[in-house]
Design a protein around this nucleic acid. Structure first.
Lengths: 215, 215, 215, 215
DNA sequence: TATGAATGAGAATTCATTCAT
DNA sequence: CATGAATGAATTCTCATTCAT
């Protein structure tokens, strides 16, 4: 991981310095994830991050210029890895319903395994930030596998519903099987027929090698 | 000890004062609705409300102690009236699906007619704040009219989806028929059968006497 | 009692109006005595008096222009009456030691009987505000009845000590006989001989018709 | 993981920072002493201290949370050193009267030498804040060297009188020998016999190496 | 790079004062 | 005269940002 500020001059720094810097940056990001999850995207002050990361004010500014930039970096850091893992895990599956549904199951599995991550994404996610797997969604509509009265409305319903689910999962107060139920409901909302839903739910979960985020 | 005239004068002074105060409070609430819709619940400063309402700082504090309290008051003021109107309009309808569905249509009609209101509610609404019409929802489940894999998950999906719809409507960028589509999708998500959905969508919208909020 | 502001125009006001005004002013003064006793001369805000007196802000300004003016008025109102009563009660007594000592005993009797008054005077009294009975003090020194190493120092010691006694009495936590002891100590500090002190302490307390302050 | 050099550098930074901070804090305390002496404990605003110390508002809050806290710190800082010096100077003296009396003389010497200090202590001192030398006082009573009609009253008389003396000394308008006179009067008030008083007054003042407070 | 003291702009809050009724 | 809503200057307090070490 490279630092966010001052990517130039890398050659002149010692390897030790670079490693130390990268470690500091990781500490800040880890702290930021917790802080944003706890306080939302607007409330926290720089001091909140400084204290949570156990660094000094000056050090913060050596890595990030503002809370906003830190939020963007935390989103990126937190999200890309997970989504790529899912993307990869489902790419071999046949048909948009199966890919979409199994992808959702993986997504909720991740959320349930890491409540802080779940809360963070639920609070910070903006539509257009990280996309629903648009390809499968569109393809499913085109093929008539998903039958909805309006595609915009469908996307909003799913997006909002999934975000709510993330917040709920982050709070820890969920009934058993919540993730699976949510997946079924999303497919049902899309008008998927019962047989295809059953296929999704009974499919073996692939890619259980999702790399752990924390060092 | 005070004369009758004096007492009447006293009452008059009191009444006039109260009226002026109530008018000012309404001005603040109207301004707050706009400001919260624009900036969200956390960002605005007291001065934002002061300027939007055209009052002085001191006057603000004569009416509300903090932004948080103003937010609560604005939520209440903004919400109760509308929900009661819908409640009343659907109370004569037969069956939970019809009541729930027509209620949703009315809700979205209100949202579409008042984008500021829509954005405000979309941004501020918390689960448990103002409730989904729990009675119809539960009753529909019990009667088997709604068929879902998990009631908690179903409620979260709808709640999050509807909030997302409000934000979308507040932004103004919605396709024609968006409210109706959203309603259909919500019912479809609940597993309602096609005939009942059709009944909801073709039902005449009652209570088109919703009183306008703005003076 | 005349109002503090706008003494002119008195002729044109009705008697009823004047009486009402005087009553209001007394209410404010009574409240002010309590408030100043509780909070000292600097801390209280106009609102503290307004609330304690059960009047409106405007009414306050009809009677007093500032807290400072109210303080002066309260001091005057609170003090003159008592001091004149004491002055009168001791004027027939023979010799400065007897007059001074019995005067002190009366003063402490008043203080013990009215803790609020005691605290107020203790907190607000400034040297030169209301004077120690200078005449008896000076005369006692001249006659050699009081023997002190420095008259300035003696006056300061007594003044400060008496103020402290007032605060103590206002707090209510005093041993039995505190007032008498304090009187004896004051005389002892002045070098008064034992026989004269005994005469002071055994003298009957005159003028037990001190009018009560509260209506 | 950190090199020895890095650690030394760290310590150096820390030490330099601490020193600067301590210097700033001293500047604030010095300014506060003057400001409180001038304006009393209640009147001054944060800005008064900020301007008197030549610092920024933010810096004030880096060191003290409120005027009240600053007052406490100033009292402590201003008082402990002086009292300990006196305590130490008199500890070798024989008998409570001598210790108490010489202690008083030293106290007044300090007050006369530093009028700002004198005014500050006179205005801020509360009973129980920094104590009269209770041990000598009590011991003198027990031994019959001090003869008073009530010990509570005696303590209050002395405490109030001494405070008044401090204010007077701070004002600068005192006759020659004021401190000595006040000392004599205090002892006289306690009923000390003439010979002991004379012994106190003629005793050489010890410990004239009281370190100056200001830098 | 890391540190943390100092800074000052800006946001929150209080409160004396005015004034229409 | 009495009322109390409105006002805005003064004050308190927070926090992003700088900078010497």
């Amino acid at each position: 991981m490279t630092t966010h500020k001052a990517r130039r001059k890398l050659d002149h720094r010692t390897r030790v310095g670079r490693e130390r810097s990268a470690r500091t940056e990781t500490r800040i990001l880890e702290a930021a994830l917790r802080v944003f999850a706890d306080m939302g995207p607007d409330a926290p002050t720089i001091d909140d991050f400084v204290q949570a990361a156990g660094i000094s004010r000056g050090t913060f500014y050596n890595h990030f210029d503002s809370v906003e930039e830190l939020l963007a970096a935390t989103s990126e850091w937190t999200t890309r890895e997970s989504l790529e893992a899912i993307e990869k895990a489902i790419e071999g599956l046949e048909g948009p319903a199966l890919r979409f549904g199994v992808g959702l199951r993986l997504f909720f599995a991740k959320a349930q395994a890491d409540p802080v991550w779940s809360t963070f994404v639920g609070r910070v996610w903006k539509v257009g930030g990280f996309e629903l797997p648009a390809r499968d969604f569109v393809q499913g509509l085109r093929l008539g596998i998903f039958r909805v009265s309006g595609s915009e409305a469908a996307r909003d319903l799913l997006f909002g519903g999934i975000r709510e689910a993330l917040l709920r999962m982050g709070s820890g107060r969920i009934p058993a099987g919540y993730g699976a139920q949510m997946t079924e409901l999303c497919l049902q909302a899309l008008g998927t027929d019962a047989r295809r839903i059953a296929a999704v739910m009974s499919h073996e979960l692939p890619g259980r090698g999702t790399p752990r985020r924390r060092r």
